[in-house]
Computed example of a mutant assay.
Amino acid sequence: MHREVARIWTVASLARHCGVSRSTLATRFQTVVGVAPIAYLTRWRIALAKDERSHGIKTVGEIALSVGFHSSSGFSTAFTRMVGCSPKRLKA
């Protein structure tokens, strides 16, 4: 997940990658990490996006694609929900 952050990950694909069932992955992940796998992935993507934004080189759309969002609007919505401001308003 960390190496291929832009990949389309699902609980099923993560479970296949780990060689376990979806329910086993979800339960173990929640127990060890404290959040569901996809929630963790979203947080990781937003953290990477914040870092990219701080460099001020890439556009919001470029950042969205690089961290696995397939639309700028979906990325902006998730970013705003988690960070408290839109990616454009975050100071570079």
Rank of each mutant, 00 (worst) to 15 (best):
H2K: 12
E4C: 08
E4V: 09
E4F: 11
R7L: 14
R7K: 15
I8N: 08
I8D: 12
I8W: 10
I8F: 12
I8R: 13
W9S: 01
W9E: 01
W9D: 03
T10K: 05
V11G: 02
A12L: 10
S13T: 15
S13W: 06
S13V: 14
L14T: 07
L14K: 06
L14F: 04
R16W: 06
R16V: 12
C18R: 09
C18I: 00
C18E: 13
S21L: 04
S23Y: 11
S23H: 12
L25F: 07
A26W: 09
F29Y: 14
F29W: 10
F29P: 03
T31I: 07
T31V: 09
V32N: 05
V33A: 06
V33S: 03
V33R: 10
V35S: 05
V35H: 03
V35F: 01
V35P: 00
A36F: 03
P37W: 08
P37I: 10
A39I: 05
A39V: 13
Y40A: 14
L41I: 15
R43E: 15
I46H: 00
A47M: 11
A47P: 03
A49T: 09
K50D: 06
D51Q: 09
E52P: 01
E52C: 05
E52G: 01
R53V: 13
R53A: 12
S54W: 11
G56T: 08
G56A: 12
G56L: 08
I57D: 11
I57H: 10
I57A: 11
K58H: 07
T59Y: 00
T59S: 14
T59F: 01
V60C: 05
V60W: 06
G61W: 01
G61T: 04
E62V: 05
I63L: 03
L65R: 11
V67G: 01
G68E: 09
F69L: 04
F69S: 01
S72E: 15
G74H: 10
F75I: 12
S76L: 07
S76D: 12
S76H: 03
A78G: 05
A78R: 11
F79P: 08
F79Y: 10
T80L: 09
T80H: 06
T80C: 10
T80G: 02
R81H: 14
M82G: 04
V83Y: 12
C85D: 07
S86G: 15
S86W: 11
P87V: 06
P87H: 04
R89S: 13
L90Q: 14
L90P: 00
L90F: 11
K91A: 08
A92P: 10
A92C: 15
